[in-house]
Structure formats: structure tokens, C-alpha cells
């Protein structure tokens, strides 16, 4: 599996709209000095960051999805159920659709849509606000299912606000916003990649530390309580790390669907366990692999076109999940 992962990573770096031979790619990765400068630039500045982003995003979304499915004991839960993605979208919509404050438009045009710090800041704040709201409400609730419903409702409210905003906005602005919602791995470079990586490492680390809690929560709130788990505190920890992961990734790459829901199921099927100490690293592996494959497909090998990543994740991933789950004829874990 690791070998497969390394191969997918290399393939992802090697493929793109400009043809670079596989050998040359390896050469650049091993000893950068000897290579053609154009190729060196493309690999180092564009393709390598993009592949690394795919790795980080794959890890983060999968782990946060796993946590949500365990916490809510619901196979359809994913990173977006708590409305965090919606919050990020609201932040972005706020900036993009607020009809031409000149600075925002300028910075978007100048830096490219997903590469803009302004957009990142806006969506981070949006995600954080919604997360704060969900955490505040949920801290007074006893039942995790109610927390889930509250999260979904807040997400709906947020999307409604965005829709109203879109309704009153100029078509060009809406187009820009729509492009953001397609998601992109390509805009994250340099410092941004570093920050995103740190955010995802922190989120995943918190998640791994709470793997014992997650195991206990598999039996439901009451059993968890009888084993000494303070359910409210555990919930806060889990929602917190999910928010960091999902919020951070959405801020940098736009909303990327599907991975968070699908990868935990694939991982459970492949590793045949419910132990989170194994499932969390497992999700990182499977999530990374799936994300790299999606990115390779998105570039449509041999062509000049690049499809939006958010479209590909569902298009490539769904059949895989259907194949595996129908093949086993039951949804393991639930």
C-alpha cells in the first residue's frame, strides 16, 4: 500500500499539461541542480506543492470524516455535517459577492482565486464562527444526535444566506464564487502549504490522541459514560479537531466533498477493524491515495484541460465505494 502511495505521488507529479518525462521528474526530485530550469520550476513550484496539498487534504478530510461518523454513529456523517464547510463558504461569499469593494476584487484578480490570503482569511473566519456557534449550542446538549441535527440545520441556514446573496449579486461575481466552490489543490504554495500542513498535523494529532475516546464512543454515549468518559468534553475535543481540519482545508482549497464520507468506509473495509488507533493512520493512507488518484484523473492525462477537483472526487470515488460496499453487501461499522 505504501509502495502504491509513493507511485501515485510520483505519477501525480509527473503528469500535467506540459509533458515532462518520468525519468526527468525522478531526476529533478533526487538532484534538482542538474535539470532543465523550466522543468525544475514547473515541478518545484507547481506540481510538487499540488501533490503535497493532495496528501495533506486527503489525510485531513478522511480523519475528520471518521471522527464525525464515530461521534454521531451515523454512516452518512462527514466533515461537512457540522456546517463548518458552509461557514467557510459564507466567509468567501461575503468577500467575493460584496459587489466590488475594490481591494477584494483587485487581490482576487491579482493573486488568483484560491491563492488569495483574503479568501483564506475570510473562509477561516466563516468556518470559525459557525464552529463556535455549534460548540456553544452543543455544550448545553446531552444527546449527540441533537448536536448532529443542530449542525446540519446551521449548515442549511448558512447556505440559504449565501443563496440570497447570490440572488442579488452580479453574474460575474457569482461566477468567481462558483469557481471557488469547485475546489482546487493548485493554489496552495509556499507559506500557505506550510501553514496548511501544520494545521492538518495538529488536527490529526488531536484526533489520534482521542482515539481511545472514539473507541469508547462506538458503544454509544451511555456506555461511554459508564466507562468514565466525560461525553461533553470528548465531544468538544472531537468537534474541535474536526473544525480545525475541515475549516483549514476548506479555507485553503475550497470545499472538497466526498473524501470525508467515503474514505472511512473504505478504510474500515480494508483494515477490517474498528480500533481508531489503526483506523486513523489507515484513513490517512487511504485518503492520501484516493486524493492523489483523483488529482491524476483531474488533469486528464495527455490533455491540456484540468477539471475541478471537487467534481472528480465524487466521480471517481463513488463507484469505488459502491463497488466495495455492495461487494460486501453490508455497511460495516454501523
Amino acid at each position: 500500500m505504501l509502495a502504491l502511495l509513493v507511485f501515485a505521488f510520483l505519477l501525480d507529479v509527473a503528469l500535467g499539461s506540459i509533458h515532462i518525462p518520468f525519468k526527468a521528474v525522478l531526476g529533478i526530485l533526487i538532484s534538482p541542480d542538474t535539470a532543465d530550469t523550466t522543468w525544475l520550476y514547473i515541478i518545484q513550484q507547481i506540481r510538487l506543492p499540488k501533490a503535497l496539498t493532495a496528501v495533506v487534504v486527503g489525510c485531513g478530510l478522511s480523519v475528520s470524516g471518521l471522527q464525525m461518523q464515530t461521534l454521531f454513529r451515523n454512516p452518512l456523517a462527514g466533515p461537512s455535517v457540522l456546517g463548518i464547510t458552509a461557514g467557510a463558504s459564507l466567509g468567501v461569499a461575503l468577500v467575493m459577492l460584496s459587489a466590488g469593494t475594490i481591494t477584494s476584487l483587485y487581490s482576487i484578480k491579482e493573486l488568483g482565486i484560491s491563492g488569495s490570503w483574503l479568501i483564506i482569511l475570510a473562509s477561516s473566519i466563516g468556518a470559525a464562527m459557525v464552529m463556535l456557534l455549534v460548540v456553544t449550542i452543543s455544550s448545553s446538549l446531552k444527546d449527540n444526535v441533537i448536536v448532529l441535527i443542530v449542525g446540519v440545520m446551521i449548515g442549511n441556514i448558512t447556505f440559504s444566506i449565501i443563496s440570497i446573496w447570490q440572488y442579488f449579486s452580479a453574474p460575474e461575481l457569482i461566477k468567481d464564487y462558483l469557481i471557488w466552490t469547485f475546489g482546487s489543490l493548485g493554489g496552495v504554495t509556499g507559506d500557505q502549504l506550510l501553514i496548511l500542513t501544520i494545521v492538518v498535523i495538529i488536527g490529526t494529532a488531536i484526533s489520534f490522541v482521542s482515539s481511545k475516546l472514539l473507541d469508547a464512543l462506538l458503544l454509544g454515549d451511555n456506555y461511554a459514560r459508564s466507562m468514565g468518559v466525560t461525553v461533553k468534553r470528548a465531544r468538544l475535543l472531537i468537534i474541535g479537531s474536526t473544525s480545525i481540519l475541515a475549516g483549514g482545508i476548506t479555507a485553503f482549497c475550497g470545499p472538497i466533498g466526498f473524501i470525508g464520507i467515503a474514505v472511512p468506509h473504505l478504510t474500515r473495509a480494508l483494515f477490517n477493524t474498528s480500533n481508531h488507533r489503526i483506523l486513523i493512520p489507515g484513513c490517512c493512507l487511504v485518503g492520501t491515495l484516493l486524493m492523489l488518484v483523483c488529482d491524476i484523473v483531474a488533469q486528464l492525462p495527455g490533455s491540456q484541460t484540468v477539471l475541478p477537483i471537487n467534481v472528480i472526487t465524487a466521480l471517481v470515488g463513488s463507484p469505488v465505494v459502491i463497488w466495495i460496499i455492495v461487494g460486501r453487501n453490508k455497511l460495516k461499522g454501523f
Binding site: R73, D215, A216, S226, M227, G228, S274, N275, F334
Partner: peptide
């Protein structure tokens, strides 16, 4: 408890081992 433990992927040994949680 009377709570239904729906986590079907859990194997019996792991479930019993969860008793060691505290």
C-alpha cells in the same frame, strides 16, 4: 444497558477489551 450497540464492525474481543478503558 438496554442500549443497542450498533457498531457491527466491532469484533467480540475488541468489545470486551473496551471494558479495560478505565
Amino acid at each position: 444497558l438496554t442500549d443497542n450497540v450498533r457498531s457491527g464492525d466491532l469484533d467480540v474481543y475488541s468489545l470486551i477489551a473496551l471494558g479495560r478503558y478505565p
